[in-house]
């Protein structure tokens, strides 16, 4: 089964319709189409492969359970991605991985630094680096930079002050920058 972005709209609609009716073959096909991208999302949030696998599993259970609530407006992948992000957040909360540390990162601006050689880094390496960030900073970074949440929304979702969200993001940026440079210097 090709990945979701390669399936035509009509085929996807037919697939979703069959999944709603409980067609197990259709559900397997949708899983095959969606899972590679969603697993990458889970890896970014989880910090390790085992947790990412659990999040992926729970996320798909929720996707199939809530399929009736997908109205058809907007991208299906976007709708599913939101579910996986929420599932990841729940998983992290359950494991107490979202407890915000007290240290506040200095608000160092990256503008004075030399350009980061991101072009030389593959996405797999980058995902690995993001996964190795502290869980609180990693979560805020993923939600803000990749998912596009605002600090207000992140603060509401995580139950933290907006200022904490900003400081965690900055900390993640700085740490990621340093890890990328270190990786390049080791090559």
């Amino acid at each position: 089964m090709p990945e979701l972005h390669l399936i035509s709209v009509k085929s996807l609609e037919a697939l979703i319709s069959a999944c709603r009716k409980g067609d197990r073959t259709a559900q397997r096909e949708l899983f095959e189409a969606l899972s590679p991208r969603m697993y990458a999302v889970c890896l970014r949030y989880a910090g390790n492969a085992d947790d990412a696998k659990d999040i992926l599993q729970d996320g798909f259970v929720t996707v199939f359970s809530k399929l009736d609530s997908y109205s058809g407006s907007g991208s299906f992948e976007g709708w599913a991605r939101k579910i996986f992000v929420n599932t990841a957040l729940m998983h992290l909360r359950k494991n107490d991985a979202l407890r915000m540390s007290d240290d506040i990162a200095e608000a160092r601006d990256l503008s004075a630094r030399e350009a980061t050689p991101l072009e030389e880094i593959g996405y797999r390496q980058l995902i690995g680096l993001i996964s190795s960030l502290p869980s609180d900073a990693r979560t805020v970074f993923n939600m803000y930079v990749v998912e596009g949440y605002s600090h207000k929304e992140i603060a509401r979702q995580l139950g933290i002050p907006e200022a904490t969200s900003r400081s965690k993001l900055q900390r993640a940026r700085v740490q990621l920058q340093e890890m990328i440079k270190k990786l390049r210097s080791n090559d």
């Binding site: 899972s35 590679p36 990458a40 990256l110 503008s111 350009a115 980061t116 930079v145 990749v146």
Partner: peptide, 23 residues
């Protein structure tokens, strides 16, 4: 590179990333 430029580059690299699903 500004924070915004850094964020954009990161997002472009990882938002559509795929990964092999475990057994």
């Amino acid at each position: 590179m500004t924070d915004k430029e850094f964020d954009i580059k990161i997002r472009q690299k990882v938002e559509d990333a795929s990964w092999e699903v475990p057994e």
